[in-house]
Design a protein around this nucleic acid. Structure first.
Lengths: 338, 338
DNA sequence: TATCAACACGAAAACGGTTTCGTAGTAAAT
DNA sequence: ATTTACTACGAAACCGTTTTCGTGTTGATA
């Protein structure tokens, strides 16, 4: 990398001091018109741009926000990043993206690195392992040190910060209710282990909808997928039950369920209806296309960024933490027409 | 954000100079064992971490690499990021992700911001608009200023830098040949406009395979999708031709083609075979699952990162630019079994 | 003619570190 | 007693900016 032109060089070349150059470039009234023009012309000719690091060190602001995600190869997280980037960009920030790979240790290290001056604040979705271990000290530390922090999607109540979540209980309720409304009565659910909050909540919504409709919750109808093992095999066991609908808490589980149904010669949606979660490409393009709860990832990203930047730029730090609930809605497609 | 503890504070509190503290923390032999321990204990107790910005300004290294992508909500780009992040992380770098949104102006601005000291080098996939306008001056500038740069996937030959590309011609050839081998003779192609190099190359491979098999290339068999208009309608026109196979240059085009085929009552793969590109979730989970050319995005990301970091850390800058060609292979699924 | 503003600029501190170089103090060697 | 050689530390420069505070010059005013 070629050395860049600096204010020092300009100053020396033009026989003035660095302060004069700095002021001239910022159009200070302290500098004469003549000198300003001379300096600006020179700077312009050599395409001078102030060094970001120096500015950041000086101002103690990086204008960068860090995002830590469990993973990226995932439609939902991609859209969230996209939303964050949009708002960040509009408000003059850049984003630094890191991944925890669902790993607690890496989450801790990443937070450490980023908060040593590299970013002005963090947007995080917590790693599975961290949630499972309930090891949240690194987040408590952030709060302790008043690092601007916004959690989204995978959050934890004990961490006192702004949050952006989807109304997972409501979404699970809506999804289940939709199935009930089209006449299904024996509804299986494919969800996550209980320590993954989103899965738990969606399950709770499912439960509520069934209760309301006076349908009892059958134990065998609930599959808690452990991703360490074969997802396919686990979902398959659900088909040994007498069911007429499946609510899957993400689109991959839904797609796999559809595949199994087809293999068993079941027609969708005539024999069995399926509803998924997260409005990704699979749901849109597979055949039958899949009815899903659309999770507004882009909106979540935008909101998270707005909250964070407000928090970063707000002097009065006493504002109580907010939680924004992004409501989701159902997009009915071919997999659930009654 | 609470003010962080600095070397200055430690020095004052312990009644020594900042240089002593700095040396002690870096275990310099210049400092007595006793003093070292005293300083380390204090620093440890207050959880001292050196400020990144200061280190970066001093060393003129950021240990950050910038990635500029046309978009992110796209399986291929996500996997590339993932690969870059893995290698970057292993070699002590962080990544800063930005998007051009296929927009030339934003690409230019992003490059400007990042190269003002925020990153040590760049990994870029060029925006469509830039390629269409053949306006590459901002890239020539990077080369001129010896900014470490690696282009991937969407590259341009006139830019003298390291590149990581897929063998698109070979991939298009393989895909078409596969269709020919399973007995297809009337093969349509759904590709991009010509200014998108990847689409052009895949088309060239298609052409070569047909020529080799002595099949003439029919003009009506070629759809150059303009994404400004309805993709669905454009692909539909292909079905007015008498075809027995479709080669789509990405998985969305493939999925749409399959949908249209179904709507027309055509069975896949009996009546018509389909092959896509990019091994994403759609291809894997849709029904029928789609035969695709798998593009090794993760590998590309890894290679790009290795090349870039080598270049950044290499003193002798005279090394000639390398181009790594990542070969792709075909994953045969249900949409093309003969 | 002495006083005072206004003007135009420079010196220096600051951001938070690292590193080179100098040096006081001590102990060993001459 | 003088020189030498460590040891252990501090002063100061440096990275590239911004900003506060002086200060010399000029022209106007009393």
């Amino acid at each position: 990398m070629k050395p860049k032109i600096t204010i020092k060089i300009i100053a020396k070349e033009l026989g003035v001091s660095t302060s004069t150059v700095s002021k001239a470039l910022r159009d200070s009234h302290e500098i004469s018109q003549e000198t300003k023009e001379r300096i600006k012309a020179y700077a312009n000719y050599y395409n001078y741009r102030p060094n970001n690091l120096a500015l950041q060190l000086r101002s103690q602001k990086t204008k960068v926000i860090g995002i830590i995600l469990p993973k990226i190869v995932h439609h939902f997280f991609s859209t969230v990043i996209s939303g964050v980037e949009k708002v960040a960009n509009e408000r003059g920030y850049n984003i630094m993206v890191c991944f925890s790979n669902e790993n607690q240790q890496k989450e801790i290290e990443t937070i450490n690195v980023l908060t040593n001056g590299s970013v002005d604040g963090l947007i995080v979705s917590i790693a599975t392992e961290t949630l499972r271990n309930k090891a949240l000290d690194h987040f408590y530390n952030l709060i302790e040190n008043e690092v601007p922090l916004v959690l989204f999607d995978r959050v934890h109540n004990s961490i006192r910060c702004d949050k952006v979540i989807v109304d997972d209980i409501g979404a699970g309720y809506k999804a289940t209710k939709h199935l009930i409304e089209i006449g299904c009565k024996k509804i299986g659910i494919v969800t996550t282990p209980e320590h993954v909050t989103v899965g738990l909540h969606r399950y709770q919504g499912y439960e509520r909808a069934l209760n309301e409709a006076s349908i009892s919750v059958a134990k065998g109808f609930i599959i808690n997928v452990d991703e360490e093992q074969s997802i396919y095999d686990q979902i398959k066991t659900l088909f040994d039950q007498d069911i007429d609908a499946i609510f899957a808490v993400n689109e991959i589980y839904a797609a796999i369920a559809i595949r199994i149904a087809k293999e068993r010669g079941l027609h969708i949606p005539n024999d069995i209806s399926v509803i998924g979660f997260t409005d990704g490409l699979i749901s849109e393009y597979s055949s039958p296309s899949i009815t899903t709860v659309v999770q507004h990832g882009f909106t979540m990203g935008e909101q998270a960024a707005e909250l964070l930047i407000d928090r970063i730029e707000d002097q009065k730090n006493d504002m109580v933490p907010q939680t924004k609930v992004i409501s989701s809605n159902i997009k009915i497609r071919e997999s659930s027409k009654s």
